[in-house]
């Protein structure tokens, strides 16, 4: 299992469209992927879960991935968050 801490950088936070993008990206991998914000842990492959985080700009999120492609999964999500979801 690997862990990575990232910061939400886009202005609007993880609202519906970025949340859907996170789910889409996470779902490409076989690993179990979870996001944890302030102790609330959700399945990264669930739109409902990701929206429950209500993660605004500046939130700190711990991504954990567990499975064969865990390394690739974490990398992909890191890139997605860093791209600010093409918002700006």
């Amino acid at each position: 299992m690997i862990k990575k801490t990232i910061i939400v950088q886009n202005k609007l936070g993880l609202h519906a469209r970025p949340a859907a993008m996170v789910v889409g990206e996470a779902s490409r991998f076989g690993s179990e992927i979870h996001l944890n914000k302030d102790g609330l842990e959700v399945n990264a492959k669930s739109i409902m879960g990701v929206m429950m985080l209500a993660a605004e700009m500046g939130s700190q999120i711990i991504i954990t991935a567990n499975g064969e492609d865990e390394k690739l999964a974490i990398q992909a999500l890191e890139i997605l968050f860093a791209s600010k979801f093409d918002e700006e």
């Binding site: 609007l12 936070g13 609202h15 519906a16 609330l40 409902m48 879960g49 929206m51 429950m52 209500a54 605004e56």
Partner: peptide, 21 residues
């Protein structure tokens, strides 16, 4: 569960999504 978590957010924008759910 999801609704009450989202509603506790201090951001109006996220709270509005709770009513969609």
């Amino acid at each position: 569960k999801a609704i009450s978590t989202i509603e506790s957010s201090d951001q109006v924008f996220f709270r509005e999504r709770a009513s969609d759910i």
